[in-house]
Design a protein around this nucleic acid. Structure first.
Ligand code: ZN
Ligand code: ZN
Ligand code: ZN
Ligand code: ZN
Lengths: 388, 388
DNA sequence: AAACCAGGTCACGAGGTCAC
DNA sequence: GTGACCTCGTGACCTGGTTT
């Protein structure tokens, strides 16, 4: 089974990669030929960049966009601050530098985490844990890499920022009034990424149409909500009036408070959250690991779809959970990985509950109906490529 | 094989350059020691100039010659407007400025391009496509630089402007009558650049006399016509009465309409068009890439010349096409490069067809005969340097 | 032996400076 | 405002130690 997630154009065939390593993309800037450097997938230039700048104090330098630069091959030279920040975000670690003897004293706030990583490795004698190579096989690294990039592509932070900034074209009074509408637009944009994301997960495309349809229907709300957490973080949605005013107006204060709480409790390492999304897609509703979402049969008036081969779907889910967990061990050591993993699942359940509560809201229903209709439409074989 | 195209004086030997980098000329002002700055070949002073003025609004400033200043080392200080315009024309890019806060948000059209490039990379296995340095080797940059300058030297825009302006010495009525004659003079000037251009392409000079003769005969019309497109643009020939009146009178409305259409469809980046010219010189008429021009045997009454070593000529053509294409990737990214390249070849074919249609015109025949005779004469060994 | 991933190197091309 | 000359960040390519 192949694990590449092609970010290819719609008209291109889903070709299998011949050489897995050459496809892995840099998690910092997005170019090809990424390898593991300093603990994360990146290209040689980002590796060199990190080596040279890891000791830089991030709080010193300011950036023109206030830390919101989008890092691409073209823009990576313009803002060292944001590039370095992204290096750390994707999991690159100062501690893996050897030569330029990173002064142990300078590490102020990152110290506890690092100690945990190292100390836990020796405590738990799982045979490979003390290895500083990861448990992830090469194909798994590639797959991980592809998932991260697929997420970044289909749930676009720049797009989200544009939507947020659009409000400032209007005077204050109008902005207040527009907030709920704008919030719905934001949500719509988030949910609309779900299907394109899923269709680029190779495993997903191998499922029969009915199963794909069932999974999307069942998990759309949960995936959309969960990926919304990451988008909200990266685009700083929560500090915008659109969210502050719009969200409570749509969903009420209870759901809003819950959502904010979940948002804060969700693991701060976005990579983990992104890696959980594919697993959420293959959530069958009957497994224990991931939350069962009540089926939408009531919503659509037709009977529940049943998966043609539930075991197969569960295997796919396991495939992605394994990658996530191995990565977490690699990144945080066994003990912390277990704790974080449990917390991640907990917040995923909370998120599921919360979106269940929010589901009663009429406007939310309309939104979901529209999205699901669009998706259903595009999932029909002849229209499969319309929603790109 | 050496790739330098000497723009040396006729009496100088065709010496191989010992230091390739020192020969590259600034595409803006023409002085030596050019390097790549902001995406194009230029000297340090033009680099500084661009850095300081790139954010200038071109539409604000007017220039004395209405935007037609010729930029040389002497004149470059006199008109900032035209110098900056030329900077952009030769391919210098604002986006490559770092400090002077080119807003990331303002890049409206370049952002999707990047995305496109990334998504297509998996399909096209050229591994260096997303390299932010160009694929061009140093000698290739030098060669590119030399071709550009050779073109500017042998197909002189100032000369063209002088010819255009000469008409205004006469009263209106006479101008009308003179238009066809003047048009032929213009065309003659364009075609007369072909041979001097070709003889300064080093590869061309290494061919045996017979082959050179065959290639010039065969491709003269196409090269002349194609280079005429650039000259017409830079000297704004099409807005002159000489063209408006003279051209249709010589060639008829059909050919004129076609010519104007081709003129408009040809890639707006003159650099690309200039780089295509050497490839047109080595058009053997049997290759698929570039258009087959019907041999001129009917025209001259003698049998077709055959090339002594067609493979060699094709290799030379490949040499220049490679430079062109690598430059296009460097400049526009892979996907847009492919599209533009296809369009370029298309217009080249159109141009070939159009000049084939124009060939029946008697006056054109006379013109071509004169040019070819002159060229033939100057190609004879003892006269090789007469037509400079 | 091959792979992976540390560090090292140096040409390239950004920005900055200052006499003019 | 111009441009010769400077500093320095960048990244392709290399070396070398370690694991498989
Ligand atoms: Zn990178
Ligand atoms: Zn920044
Ligand atoms: Zn110059
Ligand atoms: Zn001017």
């Amino acid at each position: 089974m192949n694990c590449d997630n092609q970010s290819s154009k719609k008209h291109e065939p889903l070709n299998k990669m011949n050489n897995p390593t050459s496809v892995a993309l840099c998690h910092v800037c997005g170019i090809e030929h990424a390898q593991v450097h300093y603990g994360a997938m990146c290209c040689v230039s980002c590796k060199m960049f990190f080596r040279r700048n890891a000791q830089l104090n991030l709080s010193n330098r300011k950036c023109a966009t206030n830390g919101k630069c989008n890092i691409t091959i073209k823009s990576r030279k313009t803002c060292r601050y944001c590039r370095l920040k992204k290096c750390f975000t994707i999991g690159m670690q100062r501690e893996l530098l050897r030569a330029s003897h990173n002064r142990q004293g300078t590490r102020c706030k990152s110290t506890p985490k690092e100690n945990v990583v190292r100390s836990t490795i020796t405590v738990y004698p799982l045979d490979l844990l003390q290895n500083d190579r990861s448990l992830l096989k090469n194909e798994q690294w590639t797959c991980l890499s592809n998932v991260i990039h697929l997420f970044d592509e289909k749930f676009s932070v720049p797009q989200m920022r544009d939507l947020l900034n659009a409000q400032y074209l209007f005077p204050m009074k109008i902005r207040m009034k527009m907030a709920p509408t704008n919030m719905l637009t934001l949500l719509s944009a988030m949910y609309q990424g779900v299907y394109p994301f899923a269709t680029n997960i190779t495993h997903f495309t191998t499922l029969p149409l009915n199963d794909r349809s069932t999974l999307i229907e069942r998990n759309m709300r949960n995936i959309g909500g969960y990926s919304g957490i990451i988008l909200s973080r990266d685009a700083d949605v929560h500090s915008s009036p659109i969210f502050k005013i719009g969200f409570p107006e749509i969903y009420g204060t209870q759901v809003t408070d819950d959502a904010i709480k979940i948002y804060k409790n969700t693991d701060q390492d976005n990579t983990l959250v992104k890696l959980l999304i594919p697993a959420l897609i293959f959530s069958t509703g009957s497994d224990l690991l991931l939350p069962k979402i009540e089926s939408k049969c009531d919503h659509f008036g037709n009977s529940c779809h049943l998966l043609s081969n539930e075991k197969q779907v569960l295997e796919m889910q396991n495939f992605y959970v394994e990658i996530l967990f191995k990565y977490m061990i690699f990144r945080y050591g066994f003990k912390e990985a277990v704790i974080r993993f449990a917390a991640l699942i907990k917040t995923s359940l909370d998120q599921s509950m919360c979106s269940l509560n929010g589901r009663e809201v009429r406007k939310h229903q309309q939104l979901m109906e529209t999205i699901v209709e669009q998706t259903e439409h595009s999932m029909a074989p002849q229209n499969e490529i319309v929603l790109y």
